[in-house]
Simulated scan of single mutants.
Amino acid sequence: MSTETMWEKVLQRDAAADGRFVYAVRSTHIYCRPTCPSKRPNREQVEFFANPKEAEQKGYRACRRCAPKTENIASHVARICRELTDDYKGLSPEDIAAREGLALRRLNQIFRTVLGVTVREYLASHKLEDFKSKLKTSQDVTGSMYDAGFGSPSRLYEKSDAVLGMTPASYGRGGRGAHIAFGIRDSEIGHILIAATEKGVCTISFGDNAKKLESDLRKEFHAAEITRNDDAVEQYLDAIAAHIEGNEFLTSIPIDIHATAFQAKVWQLLRNTKPGETLTYSGLAAKLGAPSASRAVARACASNRVAIAIPCHRVVAASGDLSGYRWGVERKRQLLQRERKQVV
């Protein structure tokens, strides 16, 4: 990495550069990490070192504000996340911040930079993931609830409604207790399968083989009551078909899918995009306030199972390449071409 590139990362306070180098200021004899919140010095006063040891060998001392000798922020967040299964289990965000010797506001800034969510949002998602994991090996909903850190059933169901979609008891048994209706229709880009619960659409998928689409749905919700009923999902099939044909762009339909706190933020940003518009993975990460989270954004896009309703086809690589798409890059190309054609 050139010195000018490093300087750019210092000016941007690029979190991805933390741990890769430190910069030192000749006039103050202090060295800092690239993300240091201190006022930026004049470029001619700055020199760069690969690590704190090299800077100290040249007579520089560590900055007290950014503590460059300590772990970088990504490692810091990773350690806290690991501690949630041990020493920090059951603690509130305020308690965790106190244990770390930081103000909660600062800890939230660190979490947003690395994960795109606050400590509280991460804890809510972590509890649900822990709860789901326990349910898969136990039929005891109440026991799993308390083991995962929920203080009461009302707290669990309040969170599960917003994030899980299905109720906790049915989720743990592969969807048992859930009623899912689905329908299939031919379109100009292949077969469309749409499935919905009483709450909203849980699957929109494309494929060349209708039987395989149905098989995949039944594997996904292997214990749910699944019935083919094209009439029940006709309004959704009509809306998606109209979007594909360019007659009327899809604006919003109710969806019922599981999402982590981070996935939910990515997907909501995608739902706010307009037909014909494209974003890059890094651009989405920047909008989330987590510029180093491009890979996590890509994983969130890949996890989307409601095509077009959450328009992950509008996300492209920084080079402009279409990159991957769960339902095929050629379908992604066709969807983008059709949207651009209609908005011109």
Rank of each mutant, 00 (worst) to 15 (best):
T3N: 14
R61Q: 13
R65N: 11
Q235E: 14
D216W: 11
A181T: 02
A24C: 04
N209H: 12
Y146A: 03
A232D: 10
P68K: 07
D161P: 01
L123R: 04
Q57M: 12
G143P: 01
C301I: 04
E47F: 04
I253F: 07
M145P: 00
I192H: 05
L128Y: 00
S292K: 09
F131H: 02
D95R: 15
W327T: 00
A50G: 13
G101A: 12
L135G: 03
A318N: 14
P68G: 05
Y281H: 11
R65D: 10
E129T: 09
K136H: 11
K274Q: 13
A293G: 08
T197H: 13
R271M: 13
Q139N: 11
G320S: 09
C301Y: 01
V77C: 01
V329P: 01
Q139V: 11
S75N: 07
A224F: 03
A181R: 10
E248A: 13
K274E: 12
I310T: 10
N272Q: 15
M145E: 00
K132S: 13
I244D: 01
G59E: 06
E214S: 10
Y146C: 01
A224W: 01
A67L: 14
S152C: 08
R185A: 11
G200M: 03
L336S: 06
R185I: 08
H126K: 10
A196K: 07
R295I: 15
